[in-house]
Measured scan of single mutants.
Amino acid sequence: DEFHFHWNGRDIRVRGDSEELRRLIEAIKRGELSEEEIERAIEILER
C-alpha cells in the first residue's frame, strides 16, 4: 500500500502498511502532533 497526503505544502508518499503507520498518518491529518514531531516522522517514513 501507499499512503499519500499533503502536509505543509509538501506532497508526501509513504509505502508500507502497518497499524502503526496508519495511526501516525491519522494523527498527522488530525493535527495531533507538533510540527517538529511531524517533520521527524516524515523523515523516517521517507527512507
Rank of each mutant, 00 (worst) to 15 (best):
D1F: 09
D1C: 07
D1N: 12
F3V: 04
F3L: 06
H4D: 04
H4A: 04
H4T: 11
H4L: 06
H4W: 10
H4I: 15
F5N: 00
F5I: 03
F5G: 00
F5P: 00
H6I: 09
H6D: 01
W7E: 00
W7Y: 06
N8M: 09
N8H: 05
G9C: 08
G9P: 00
G9M: 01
G9F: 01
R10V: 03
R10W: 00
R10H: 03
R10C: 02
R10Q: 03
R10E: 02
D11Q: 13
D11R: 15
D11I: 15
D11G: 04
I12G: 00
I12E: 00
R13N: 14
R13P: 07
R13Y: 15
R13V: 15
R13A: 09
R13H: 14
R13G: 04
R13K: 14
V14E: 01
V14Y: 15
R15D: 13
R15N: 14
G16K: 05
G16F: 05
G16A: 10
G16Y: 06
D17N: 12
D17H: 08
D17F: 08
S18F: 07
S18G: 08
S18I: 07
E19F: 15
E20K: 09
E20G: 09
E20D: 11
E20W: 13
E20Y: 14
L21A: 13
L21F: 15
L21R: 05
R22V: 09
R23N: 08
R23M: 12
L24P: 00
L24I: 09
L24Y: 04
L24S: 01
L24Q: 02
I25F: 15
I25H: 03
I25T: 05
E26G: 13
E26F: 14
E26N: 15
I28P: 00
I28Q: 01
I28C: 02
I28K: 01
K29H: 10
K29V: 13
K29T: 10
K29L: 10
R30N: 10
G31C: 05
G31D: 06
G31Q: 07
G31H: 11
E32F: 11
E32R: 05
E32K: 08
E32V: 10
L33Y: 07
S34F: 05
S34M: 09
S34C: 04
E35S: 13
E35C: 06
E36H: 12
E36Y: 14
E36S: 12
E36D: 11
E36T: 11
E37K: 05
E37Y: 05
E37M: 08
E37S: 06
I38A: 04
I38N: 02
E39D: 11
E39Q: 07
E39C: 04
R40E: 07
R40P: 03
R40S: 08
A41Y: 07
A41H: 05
I42P: 00
I42T: 02
I42R: 01
I42L: 07
E43M: 14
E43H: 12
E43L: 13
E43V: 10
E43I: 09
I44W: 15
I44L: 11
I44V: 12
L45E: 01
L45R: 01
E46G: 06
E46A: 08
E46D: 08
E46R: 07
R47C: 06
R47A: 13
R47Y: 09
R47D: 14
R47Q: 12
